[in-house]
Design a protein around this nucleic acid. Structure first.
Lengths: 134, 134
DNA sequence: ATTTAAATGCAACAATGATGCAAATGTAAA
DNA sequence: TTTACATTTGCATCATTGTTGCATTTAAAT
């Protein structure tokens, strides 16, 4: 599945910014920050446009935003796009990278009566196997 | 256990800002934002002091910071202080409040070889029982 | 090719958070 | 109780993420 296809499927206009962002993210095996994405992007877009693209893509459940911390926001393809299972995210405190942990599924929470869940985010913070042996 | 005791136990100076923050948080049954805490606080402190207090208290594992979103940061007593179990947090998208879900424990994650976990955060977003029937 | 709703760029702004430095304060020792 | 010193505080300044309004440009349907 390519970026253009994804956009059409979700009834979004095929703009170069959106296609570029999706192209970069879909090629990556990790969740990426705004700057990481911008660096790999061909075009040069205004910051506002960038954010609005992220917002639109997130609202359409194409991208998933992982907020590790105030200054550590990452984007990845939403599991719904690949019909992948919901999974936890691992944040390495050493290399600052966020990895999707497909082998750690996120269970649907059993909430007290009257509560409704829309989304569950699991973020595991620690040290990844690359940074471990150093 | 009172604020002064907690500070001494962790070898932190008893400053009025720290004691005030702890006093407010320990009386509350929900995780509170910086502004919520400031409103309930007697003294009037500089924003920097406030943040440094939060940081110190967090580093000493007295407070726990829950980052719901870029503009939604909350603080609660760290489970370690009360020797409570690690638990999930529920963020109500309607009333904007964060509740500690003691009945939903956070499991120690089983990670691939080479990974080490220091902390796991589970945030469930949805609608709470107060906002449900409206 | 024309039309129109949507997307973009620009400027301005808000909130959280960090840092450097001088002044004030808590605490341990005399 | 007073003194001494390390710690904390307040202030100024700056970085980053994110938002909004408005004029201009663009995608895509006719």
């Amino acid at each position: 599945m390519n970026p253009a296809e994804v956009l059409q499927r979700h009834h979004l206009k095929r703009t170069s910014c959106r296609e570029g962002i999706l192209d970069v993210i879909m090629r990556s095996d990790k969740a990426m920050s705004e700057n990481e994405i911008r660096e790999k992007l061909a075009g040069n877009y205004d910051r506002t446009t960038f954010y609005r693209s992220f917002k639109t893509l997130e609202e359409s459940r194409i991208l998933h935003r992982i907020v590790v911390d105030h200054l550590n926001v990452r984007y990845a393809i939403d599991p719904a796009v690949n019909s992948n299972p919901l999974h936890a995210h691992f944040y390495c405190e050493a290399c600052n990278e966020v990895k999707c942990m497909e082998m750690i599924p996120v269970a649907v929470p059993v909430l007290p009566k009257g509560y409704t869940a829309n989304e569950t985010e699991v973020i595991i913070k620690g040290v990844c196997h690359h940074c471990q042996d150093k």
